[in-house]
Design a protein around this nucleic acid. Sequence first.
DNA 1: ATTCTGAATACTGAATACAGAATACAACAA
DNA 2: TTGTTGTATTCTGTATTCAGTATTCAGAAT
Lengths: 214, 214
Amino acid sequence: MIRRTTLVEEVYRVLRDMIASGELKPGEVLVQDQLAEKLGVSRTPLLHALRLLESENLLIRSNTHRVSVRQLTLEEAIVLFEMRESLESLACRYLTPIIAQEDIDRFRRDFTLAYEKKNVEEYRKADTAFHLFIAERCPYLDLRTVLARSGFMTKCLIKGLVRPPEETYEEHLEILRCFETRNPIGAEEAMRTHIRRTVERLKLLRDSHGALEG
Amino acid sequence: MIRRTTLVEEVYRVLRDMIASGELKPGEVLVQDQLAEKLGVSRTPLLHALRLLESENLLIRSNTHRVSVRQLTLEEAIVLFEMRESLESLACRYLTPIIAQEDIDRFRRDFTLAYEKKNVEEYRKADTAFHLFIAERCPYLDLRTVLARSGFMTKCLIKGLVRPPEETYEEHLEILRCFETRNPIGAEEAMRTHIRRTVERLKLLRDSHGALEG
DNA sequence: ATTCTGAATACTGAATACAGAATACAACAA
DNA sequence: TTGTTGTATTCTGTATTCAGTATTCAGAAT
């Protein structure tokens, strides 16, 4: 089936990518006319897209209605990860009865290949794809939406891996094992543990960073 | 300070209220021209508001770009409550060090008065205000946003109390005690227990409802 | 009677125009 | 020199128009 799309969706996607890539910088004020000209559209779909991104807290509006790219603090990133800790583990519980074996196999293979080759970039990609998959395949719209957005936002701030493959590889395998044995509670707890450790690493980073600045 | 607002915000608010009140019915298809005329605005701010509500999953867009009010199933409401179970308890953890004693006192008084007078409507109002307060006062934007939206959505489907005051009154007092003694972990667990029991009640309702239909 | 096709009508997305508010700058007064 | 005021310019929110698409209806073909 042909899926009807709109310019708004396209502009929204492009702007998101520009934020994620850093082309639009945190704190940068967006001027509608300039941006519309740059993207080759009128202000109408652009304004729609800006409002949507604002509604997702990626953009911030001042009292004078100037829109800027949100500056996400490490503290806020930690909160996002804490939210993901419970939401993504909930998603794993829901996903366990329905995830296809071929997906489980694919992720296990991707993680293992990258890990054994000590290819951190490949491992990072597998990591990102895995978490993205869990969000996208979650069978409930509301949870799917929140996971997608919080995942995107933490990715904007934190490029690369918080913890190295040596730490996370076995955790990923454990989650996959629970999927495979169709153990929802196990999958939920395995994912919770996985992300909680990342949260704790971020808190360590925050605290050492704070000590440097203090 | 005077806060600048827009027609979009106003239309958004009115539409949300119309959905919550049932004036716009689940499944109802919204026609932009008619609705704009009814609200006394042009289609422009209306269209913006519709997109925002769609982005929050309150409205659903078909492939032909017709927008209708989302029909939320009991299963989906349960998922929303499960999300709230962990997110609202997380918010309680964050809120515990900063919540003002006068707010604690006010909620305790409101719950107690309504409970002792056996006034279920007053109790329901105190209940709603309490949960709304926790969402609104959460010091982190992203969590605040998700809580506000999931709270609104569950309220649209589930009018009134899931469980009676006799069950929840003591649970509310326990949360307030943890706030008062500045015990974040206690507050988090007390709220988690409170909502989990509600989740379990909803699952019972779902399962008995399923049996009737089965 | 049923199905198909084309035209008319209704609806939506995007562009453009207009009005009001915000900002920048120059001139004037103290 | 500094502070205030007035004016010009820029920017944003909203209304309107236009073009494209979806839906409905009537007539023709089977």
